[in-house]
Nucleic acid binder design. Structure first.
Lengths: 334, 334
DNA sequence: TTGAAAGCGCTAACAT
DNA sequence: ATGTTAGCGCTTTCAA
């Protein structure tokens, strides 16, 4: 009964707890003791108790990753980026889903205060509330944000340069001859919605193109929302291109256009945003903007680990990563 | 410096550590002490140190969830199901990705042996090796499997009834008049590949339909794989329906048929498997089979928690959950 | 209802 | 290079 401890190992190897501990932590021991230790560990099937170690070191070597909803596939590549960097530095990652947790939206703060991990990466594309931000600042462990930062500049944060991404799309459409460009926007509770729309409006203005309020429709990121929005847009005369602020809505728009007998891109051009896998499978393949998700994860993890290593105590500010236009077949030159 | 401890709380509330501990754990204390305790905790901003607690209780109240690749969206609803049940019973979930971990395929075993969690749910649709299974059996904490179980019956495991799912599809196609039914299979390293194909062959046989080896193509679960397979299938005369063993391949097949000038379902019927979100967006919407992923997660978590509570020490065996046919528009009655 | 004391498994001075 | 000792913050007898 009971798992073997460092004490058992010491007894079997005829040495002391401290020596076992040192050996386990990579300090040099005499060759003979090393051998005795190895065989003792093996024969006892000893594994260190991580909770005891964490208690005395007051460190966990764990990075907590908090997301709105673990079931949201969008994070996939961000996770990959974080894990890669974290593992490289000997950190473990553990994931918490805010939505599915009974403790509610702020439940994860307890985990941090209970010292379940050494540092925290909060991923949220929903606008962060002032309350959340200020509670985050009160935390004694380092925090890094991916997504919205609610204008905060003291916490290090990483996001897509949404404005630039949409601007690039508008410029592209303009370059191939489009002048009447409509826009399907996302829900207000996402910060990206604001910046993407700003990109659309600013670039239109910079290019001297018409900005018609009727050409902008608010929707909900969903395929069916995009479908509905497109129906309204197609009822308006003169529009030659539609930018949807994410791929799902763009696909809905594409489907809607086809159903209504429009040929894409002959009759109307469509551009999405995100470059989700499906965007390549629709017919015709969707022109969109690719987000550097892996790099977002890496950048965030690097920033956190720097703070964890005490290298840059005051690492802060906001870092925006540039998306890239992916030209496929839903736009035509006029 | 240093976080407040139970000792600080005791000092401020003018009582002893034991009383603080009891209060924290829900035991009754005198009304006055309770008030003193509350205000002490508040003013000190005290939070229990979870690592100390775990050390002494030798319990973590954490369920470890190990997946092949956290970036795989397919798990989403399984996660939801697990979290729901786990949270209900006061358990936290933490996720480990085998693929992205430097410690390799078996790295997660250490986490269990280091007592990072009380129980383990391993999700893998890849065939489990004998070595893995036997190492799992040696573990001293309860384990539950989702997906493959490599014929093991002593560990409790949950999976989709793949054979039944495909049988249902074959029966449906037969009922609406199809007799020459082709099949696009998945990669051999997945256990589902075996059972789904078995379902196809068995049902064909039971129905007295032709089973032509040329009508069965092995592919790789991907959209492009399905595309390629469909091309080969369309070169064969007489086939009126194609079952793809997952939705991505079915979508590839659908796209291929369209590109080659075939109308679906007029010229050929197609059925997928999984009911991924995209299956509703393709044109025409894909007929497929829906998997009870949420329930899989719930069932696995319930099984684990039973073992954790010592209710059914020897909970074991394999539980298969039935998929459901979702009829949409890619099949026609002959 | 409460306090004193022992101990969970480990690390880290300190001494040798 | 190794052993002794004193904790890390908490829970849990045992006595009072």
């Amino acid at each position: 009964m009971g798992n073997p401890t460092i004490h058992d190992v010491a007894r079997v190897a005829k040495t002391s707890k401290s020596t076992v501990s040192r050996f386990l932590n990579g300090y040099a021991v005499k060759k003979e003791t090393e051998e005795a230790l190895r065989s003792a560990i093996q024969s006892l099937n000893y594994h260190p108790n991580v909770n005891a170690r964490r208690l005395v070191k007051n460190k966990t070597r764990v990075i907590g990753i908090v997301v709105d909803d673990i079931a949201n596939n969008f994070y996939a590549d961000i996770f990959r980026g974080i894990e890669k960097v974290a593992n490289l530095h000997g950190y473990q990652c553990t994931y918490y889903s805010r939505k599915s947790n009974l403790q509610g939206e702020f439940g994860f703060m307890n985990l941090a205060q209970e010292r379940q991990f050494d540092g925290l990466i909060l991923i949220s594309f929903l606008k962060l509330s002032n309350e959340l931000i200020s509670r985050l600042e009160e935390l004694t462990i380092p925090v890094v944000l991916i997504g919205d930062a609610n204008q905060n500049e003291t916490i290090f944060s990483v996001d897509i340069n949404n404005e630039l991404g949409i601007r690039e799309i508008v410029r592209y459409l303009h370059r191939i001859g489009h002048e009447k460009i409509a826009y399907i926007s996302g829900p207000d509770e996402f910060s990206a919605t604001y910046w993407r729309k700003k990109g659309y409006e600013s670039e239109l203005k910079d290019l001297g193109l018409e900005l018609n309020p009727d050409w902008v429709i608010s929707s909900d990121w969903s395929e069916s929302g995009g479908h509905q929005a497109m129906k309204e847009l197609l009822a308006i005369q003169g529009i030659t291109a539609v930018i949807a602020s994410n791929d799902e809505m763009a696909i809905g728009a594409l489907l809607c256009a086809s159903e209504l007998g429009y040929k894409v891109p002959k009759d109307i051009s469509i551009v999405g945003f995100d470059n989700i896998p499906v965007s390549r499978w629709v017919n015709p393949p969707l022109t969109t903007s690719k987000q550097p998700l892996l790099k977002m994860g890496e950048t965030a993890a690097k920033g956190l680990i720097k703070q964890l290593s005490g290298e840059m105590e005051g690492l802060s500010g906001r870092q925006l990563l540039d998306p890239n236009l992916v030209v496929r077949q839903t736009c035509r030159s006029l």
